[in-house]
Design a protein around this nucleic acid. Structure first.
Lengths: 202, 202
DNA sequence: ATCATGGTTGGCAGTCACTGCCAGGTTGGC
DNA sequence: GCCAACCTGGCAGTGACTGCCAACCATGAT
């Protein structure tokens, strides 16, 4: 997964940028390690900052909130989702477009193991899960016009229906990833996703 | 909505219970008032406690968390959902059962205005929304066996599919309530819900 | 090489939600 | 009236998060 090198590397990379990059990565890795070792709620910001060698203040400047420490590319996530869906053929159905978006997002993980670890953490920590869902709401809102444009404009309440469709896609992704984690990463998430979508639309 | 008096009132009502009831109601009303007046995030626990005439400590004993101050019957909500769904005829389909549950839950609000106010607050306050979603995750988990039992056991992955169906129902409720709030309470939420479900299953 | 500059960092104090603990006071059964 | 069960308020403490300020340092101009 993710064979692409970051294209921004070609841009005028100042030393500051590189330092930032380094620090950011260090923090992220430390956080993920501690989270998996001792759990999310049991890991304090102070501990992460200490072990990553930065101050709490700096940590909060890099990542605005504790939950941002999971899922490193929090904004990249939303961006990829948007881009992928808007790139779909105009005559592709709503479900195909959403499926493509989900697939692209899943592809963002560095490895199968990392994906499994993140999902495991996510689904086992209520507070984290809630925060994640909240972030997803923002994505859903952004996606709204994209999906609405692909819907049959005949009947009314496109807004509500588009929202429902988007949220349903995410719901299926959730169900799929939970099951995937429960099976310790056996099989493909996308297969589970497809099964879920089929069950809902059945 | 909610014509039923609480059946527990007949039980041996001690003075303590009555006092508790009173205090609880006072806190709840104060909280809802302040929330709507100045917003959820702008209202502190200290302020609610002060205006309700109790200590912070007591407030937290009544309601474990700030978000519990919205949606008075936080646990009643889940209970009603479970009860209603399990009361459905055994041969009722999954969608009918879920629909009955959603309808019952919506019926819990004291009035249309209260429902509108709560939904408005909920959808306009990110932090609140997150907490609400977290609570909902627990309901979904509780519902799982109930829904699983009503599904076709032929194919595999009932767990994933049941989860997807439940989450989809909630997603439709969300989409419906958001639209309802956006329309200032015009029309019926259940009609919107039905439209959303139809769009998803279409 | 030097210096001004602007982005960067760390520490400190403070806010807010929330919890454990302890000292009262009130209620209910006897 | 008395004791036990229960409730309340206050206090101190934790943990996430923010604003503020002084020190810092890569960078570009001189």
């Amino acid at each position: 997964m993710k064979q692409e090198a970051k294209p921004a590397t070609g841009a005028p990379t100042t030393l500051w940028d590189r330092t930032r990059q380094l620090a950011s990565q260090e923090i992220l890795e430390t956080a993920l390690r501690l989270f998996t070792e001792q759990g999310y709620d049991e890991t304090t910001i102070a501990q992460i900052a200490r072990e990553a060698g930065v101050s709490q203040r700096t940590l909060f400047r890099y990542f605005g909130a504790k939950e941002d420490l999971l899922g490193g590319g929090q904004d990249r996530f939303g961006q990829v989702l948007m881009d992928t869906i808007s790139e779909q053929h105009a005559d592709a159905g709503v479900w195909e477009a959403l499926r493509a978006g989900v697939a692209a997002v899943l592809d963002l993980h560095d490895s199968r193991e990392q994906a499994l670890e993140r999902f495991r953490l996510l689904h086992n920590t209520a507070s984290l899960h809630a925060g994640w869902l909240e972030k997803r709401l923002r994505f859903q809102e952004n996606l709204l016009p994209l999906i609405e444009a692909r819907m049959d404009p005949a009947a009314g309440n496109e807004g509500a229906k588009a929202r429902a469709l988007i949220a349903t896609a995410f719901a299926c992704l959730d169900a799929a990833s939970i099951t995937w984690v429960a099976n310790d990463g056996k099989g493909e998430i996308m297969d589970l996703y497809d099964e879920c979508v089929a069950a809902v639309r059945g």
